[in-house]
Simulated assay, not measured.
Amino acid sequence: MITICFADNSPIVHQGMKTFFSESKTCKVETFVKNYDELQKALSKGKFNTVILDVELNGLNSIINVKALVKNNPETNFIIFTNVSDTLYAPPAIKSGVKAYLSKNIELAELEKAIVSVNNGEVIFSESVREAIEMLKKVKKEDRLYKKLSSREIEVLRYFNEGKKNKEVAKILSLDEKTISTYKLRLLQKLNVTNLVDLLNKSRELEIIS
């Protein structure tokens, strides 16, 4: 039986997963957590074959946190299960070492199948992720400036897109406000724009953000 730790903000999602997997013959959800701190505590206390993780989990500030989780728990398979843009998060998620990146729009039976496949050594990504990656490969070289962006820069960009100011982003990421200003300057330079409005517009055109 594949043991699972399910990390998601929503109690409704927790209940849905509990109901579905209660009848599974292959997977058992042993623990539900609703924030990053609880996830870390759960991983420190027990061993799970798989962690199902939403990148919008409360307290999970960056894909860098996901990379750290993967590194610190090498015997655990991590699967991203989220509504967050495939184009934004799939490439860095792949690099971070997650074994699957799946949209919450899929059927739960498909999720169960992916969990089993991952625990058999496969790497699974939804069709939308594959299409996004293939599409990005076809983009003209001059339009692929986003590939120069670091995971942290993409994270900062996402918060700017949500309307957050430098001070707010700094607090969320536990960084100095001057550091956020530096990230903003780098983003402007890398995407060859001069202001935040143009930065966000160009980022949407390149589908870095949605």
Results as ranks from 00 to 15, higher is better:
Ala7Cys: 10
Asp8Glu: 11
Ile12Phe: 11
Ile12Arg: 10
Val13Leu: 07
His14Gln: 08
Gln15Gly: 00
Gln15Cys: 05
Phe20Tyr: 13
Phe20His: 04
Glu23Gly: 10
Lys25Tyr: 11
Lys25Pro: 09
Thr26Cys: 12
Cys27Glu: 08
Lys28Gln: 10
Lys28Ala: 08
Val29Gly: 00
Val29Phe: 01
Val29Asp: 00
Val29Asn: 01
Thr31Tyr: 03
Phe32Asn: 07
Val33Asp: 07
Val33Glu: 09
Lys34Pro: 00
Tyr36Ser: 02
Tyr36Pro: 00
Tyr36Gly: 02
Leu39Gln: 08
Gln40Asp: 09
Lys41Phe: 04
Leu43Gly: 02
Ser44Arg: 15
Ser44Leu: 13
Lys45Glu: 15
Lys45Met: 12
Lys45Gln: 15
Phe48Pro: 10
Thr50Gly: 13
Thr50Phe: 11
Val51Tyr: 11
Ile52Ser: 00
Asp54Tyr: 02
Glu56Pro: 02
Leu57Met: 08
Asn58Met: 01
Asn58Ala: 08
Gly59Leu: 00
Leu60Cys: 06
Ser62Gln: 12
Ile63Trp: 00
Lys67Glu: 13
Lys67Asp: 11
Lys67Phe: 04
Lys67Asn: 07
Ala68Asp: 15
Leu69Ile: 02
Val70Ser: 05
Asn72Asp: 15
Asn73Cys: 14
Asn73Ile: 11
Pro74Asn: 12
Thr76Gln: 14
Asn77Met: 00
Phe78Asn: 03
Ile79Glu: 09
Val84Asp: 12
Thr87Ser: 15
Leu88Asp: 12
Leu88Gly: 11
Leu88Met: 14
Tyr89Ser: 13
Tyr89Gly: 04
Ile94Pro: 09
Ile94Glu: 11
Ser96Asp: 01
Ser96Thr: 06
Ser96Gln: 04
Gly97Leu: 05
Val98Ser: 04
Val98Tyr: 06
Val98Gln: 05
Lys99Ile: 03
Leu102Gln: 07
Leu102Gly: 03
Ser103Thr: 06
Ser103Tyr: 01
Ile106Leu: 13
Leu108His: 11
Leu108Val: 12
Ala109Val: 13
Lys113Leu: 05
Ala114Leu: 12
Ile115Glu: 07
